[in-house]
Amino acid sequence: MTWSEMQPLLRDACLDTLFMVWWSTVYAIIGGLPLGILLVLTDRGALLQNVVVNKVLGAIVNLGRSLPFIILLVWLIPFSRFVVGTSIGPSAAVVALAIGAIPFFARLVETAVREVDHGLVEAAQSMGGGTWTVVLKVLLPQALPSVVAGLTTTVIALIGYSAMAGAVGGGGLGNLAIAYGFQRHETGLMNITIVLLIVIVTVVQLLGDLVVRRLAARGSRQAAPVGLRRLRRTAVPAQRKPEAAARSAVAPASAEDVPDGS
């Protein structure tokens, strides 16, 4: 197989893979984000404490997480046909991918939101904030770096899943690798496919890390790139008063070392 023969195949497969990953990611966010937050909110002692809802949601998520994706994919064939009218092609694969990714992402969101200090929730409540305020202004913004990191993991898992979807006629790079690389012994094409997958995963991971670092930068001491840039532009050598700087060098340690007490 020559390069000119491979090129259109590769291009189409790439687009199919990106199509599947993009749309299943969108559905994973739409479904997984609220689900993950609800799992936290309905837990015992939380804002919307509801044992029944919590147990049911937990069971659904576990069900989705416990099935190996390849089995979920086959099992969902009738459902995919019902939703998109066909059981073959990228659109059909998106259905299975989304259903596989929603519980996966939901658990990651749950973990991220649980990490948010309860004191912040208490503070928002003491200002008169209700559940929506707590979710939109405290839990989500505070958990955002972890949520984005979770999303990166989800997207990468989806790239892997989408290759599996190729095995059952989902299209994309996985399909190409199996149909041409494995069944027709086109080793060259197989290798190019693998390189492409590695490149895509690496790019996604780098992008995700970049966003996480940008978001987390606000929380760290040296950071605040915006402030720094402004500082350089206006060329103000030292904005801090010397005594304030001296105090800030000592005080935070003592403030952060104290464990959360009564």
């Binding site: 503070a123 003491s126 913004p141 978001l215 929380g219 007490g261």
Partner: peptide, 14 residues
Amino acid sequence: IGMVFQHFNLLSSR
């Protein structure tokens, strides 16, 4: 009713 906390409870994202 204002409330002040031991661990400040400021939002690090803001």
